[in-house]
């Protein structure tokens, strides 16, 4: 085995191990940590394939920013594992759980077998220098994939505005429909007279 193959196998195993442990954990903080481990291992694979920029971006965006927010929310809600996530399920639901998982697994096998997979390519690590560089990626983003890229931007903007609207609602839990607006209108004079 070449050194490239060794690195690939190690990082692939770590990535899959992290992903599996993420699902298996009851403690949400441990889940986040395993996901970070998996992401970093994936970044190593990208770097090894010559896509340095993509790998680093994976770390900056996912491991560095998004996962911090996850952790932040979990900390604020103070989820401490099993008691919040419900007790281990009873016999009936445990049975269904395994049956459904098995069915899904079998289905997955059939689906994958149905798709004609291309033969596994050789592990290519000696790409030309420009491959996966900032320049190559941005050229694609701003020429060939310009519209999808812009649309994604708009979509994210909508999501951000939506998040702000939900967070800024004056009475949390109420929908901002007409009745809610009326009730707030009706309440304001009362508060005014109290003051």
């Amino acid at each position: 085995m070449t050194i490239d193959a060794v690195i690939f196998v190690i990082s692939a195993v770590v990535a899959i191990f992290g992903a599996a442990m993420m699902i298996a954990q009851r403690n949400p903080v441990a889940s986040v940590l395993y996901l970070i481990l998996s992401l970093i291992a994936q970044a190593v694979i990208y770097v090894q394939l010559g896509a340095l920029f993509v790998g680093i971006m994976l770390v900056i965006v996912y491991a560095g920013a998004i996962m911090v927010l996850f952790l932040f929310v979990i900390m604020l809600l103070n989820l401490r594992g099993s008691e919040e996530l419900g007790k281990p399920s009873g016999r009936v639901s445990r049975f269904t759980k395994y049956v459904i998982t098995l069915l899904f697994f079998v289905e997955l096998i059939f689906v994958i077998r149905g798709v004609a997979l291309p033969p596994a390519p050789e592990l290519v690590t000696n790409q030309p220098d420009a491959f996966g560089s900032v320049k190559a990626v941005s050229m694609l983003l701003f020429t060939k994939y310009l519209y999808p890229f812009q649309l994604t931007g708009v979509l994210m903007l909508i999501a951000v505005v939506g998040a702000v609207v939900i967070a800024r609602r004056e009475h949390p839990g109420e929908l901002p429909d007409d009745t809610a607006a009326e009730s707030t209108l009706a309440e304001t004079p009362k508060e005014g007279t109290k003051a």
Partner: peptide, 26 residues
Amino acid sequence: DLNIGILFVFAITSLGVYGIVLAGWS
């Protein structure tokens, strides 16, 4: 000498927050 060295710096810096967050939480 990475050709995207400065991005590497930022990737690593962005991971530094975990130590503090985890210390605070645990």
